[in-house]
Design a protein around this nucleic acid. Structure first.
Length: 406
DNA sequence: GACCCTTTGAAGGCC
DNA sequence: GGCCTTCAAAGGGTC
């Protein structure tokens, strides 16, 4: 079975998402049947959510939390389905030009055999995009600025070949200057990928700059980790990786977008000591979905509170069809793969004690310990009917009862 | 300014 | 293998 993760001996993918359920037969049908009813229910919920989103106050997304237990377990079912989708789509899902903007999709996919552009259309359509831009481009916090009009170190033809899917076999190592004394020879599969530039795309544009004209794949370099990071999270090419966060803590993509990263770098240099850049976790499927849909939800309703928005998004996530979710799972899988290739030595554990919310260092380790203790205490409180958060109280008081039923 | 809240999923550690 | 914990994004709210 040609799976999305089966190419080129790449075992980095999350194989757990690709478990085969070939012989389930009747049981699978039942699952689908259940899924259908479940979907109906989810759609109903979704419509209610939508209804509430339009008319409600910020608190209206409040908590229908008792429902969560019921919804749990869906991911497992979804996973089964995902495999089905993968089978159906025969690995072509993300090769489709229907995702012109998604960075990873622009990669001559090392994970896929025959990774050249497939004319096969993607069966999954979620959001209509304009200008040939992938709907998920907004997911990716990559900056345009670093690629527009064309990085100086890139051959001009790169930016001119709009959307051309380059083949893995191409020697792309020359497209990016290597750091002095850098990689001697980069196998094609470990070299930078070209970044397509799409005509008609706004060359820049604030948030949209995350999304449009995604450098993306190019942001994800495949150089050995030690060679990738500059002193402050910059790639030797000068292109920041979205997963690399300046030690100041918060990920500051906006700054990247506004061309302020250099400035920040200068400021950082002024500081006493070089701090380790923090490599963020790759986003999971839901996070990718949130990134895409958050703005939409905010636009649809008047909500601003992320907690409320996330509740809505969580419900919408469950209301998605499995095919739609599969798209995000696949994107997340690719993101993980790339992340693993980029940072082979990185572990999620690294960020446990890194004090991501602040500056890395001993202090943060201490803070992390405090935070951990607080969380534990909080959970104990909740178990023993302890003090409730003001936010939860606010929601339950303010949310109309009919909204809480969802 | 740090932390909380909220969501789902991934990953690591422990038993 | 199951369970628990932490982190990933987001930004208003709280202290």
């Amino acid at each position: 079975m040609p799976q999305l993760s089966s190419g080129g001996g790449d075992d980095l993918g999350a194989n757990d998402e690709m478990i085969s359920f070939k012989d389930e037969g009747e049981q699978e049908e039942k699952i689908q049947e259940n899924a259908f009813t479940e979907r109906d229910l989810a759609d109903l919920k979704s419509s209610l959510v939508n209804e509430s989103e339009i008319s409600q106050s910020p608190s209206a997304a409040a908590a229908r939390r008792g429902h969560q237990g019921e919804q749990r377990g869906f991911p497992d079912k979804h996973r089964e389905h995902l495999e089905g989708v993968s089978k159906q789509q025969d690995g072509s899902m993300y090769k489709s030009a229907a995702y012109p903007g998604y960075p990873f999709l622009m990669l001559p996919d090392p994970y896929l055999p025959n990774s050249s552009v497939s004319p096969s259309s993607n069966k999954v359509s979620v959001v209509q995009q304009s200008h040939g831009m992938h709907p998920l481009t907004s997911l990716l916090p990559y900056s345009n600025d670093h690629f527009s009009p064309s990085p100086p170190h890139l051959p001009t033809d790169m930016s001119q070949k709009t959307g051309v899917h380059r083949h893995q076999s191409q020697d792309l190592s020359g497209y990016y200057s290597l750091p002095p004394g850098g990689v001697g020879q980069i196998p094609p599969s470990m070299s930078w990928q070209s970044q397509p530039v799409y005509p008609g795309l706004s060359p820049c544009g604030f948030r949209q700059s995350y999304s449009s004209n995604l450098p993306s794949a190019s942001s994800y370099t495949r150089f050995p980790h030690s060679l990738m990071l500059g002193p402050s999270g910059m790639h030797p090419t000068g292109i920041p990786h979205p997963a690399i966060v300046p030690p100041s803590g918060k990920q500051e993509h906006d700054q990247y977008d506004r061309g302020m990263y250099v400035k920040q770098q200068v400021e950082t240099k002024r500081e006493k000591e070089p701090k380790k850049p923090v490599i963020k976790k790759p986003l999971n499927a839901f996070m990718l979905y949130m990134k895409e849909m958050r703005a939409k939800v905010i636009a649809e309703c008047t909500l601003k509170e992320s907690a409320a928005i996330n509740q809505i998004l969580g419900r919408r996530w469950h209301a998605l069809t499995r095919e739609e979710q599969a798209k995000y799972y696949e994107l997340a899988r690719k993101e993980r793969q790339l992340h693993m290739q980029l940072y082979p030595t990185w572990s999620a554990r690294d960020n446990y004690e890194a004090g991501l919310s602040g500056v890395a260092g001993e202090k943060n380790k201490a803070d992390w310990g405090k935070k951990k203790r607080r969380k534990r205490e909080k959970q104990q409180d909740s178990n023993t009917g302890g003090k409730r958060s003001a936010f939860a109280t606010f929601k339950e008081e303010a949310a109309p009862a009919h909204l809480l039923q969802i």
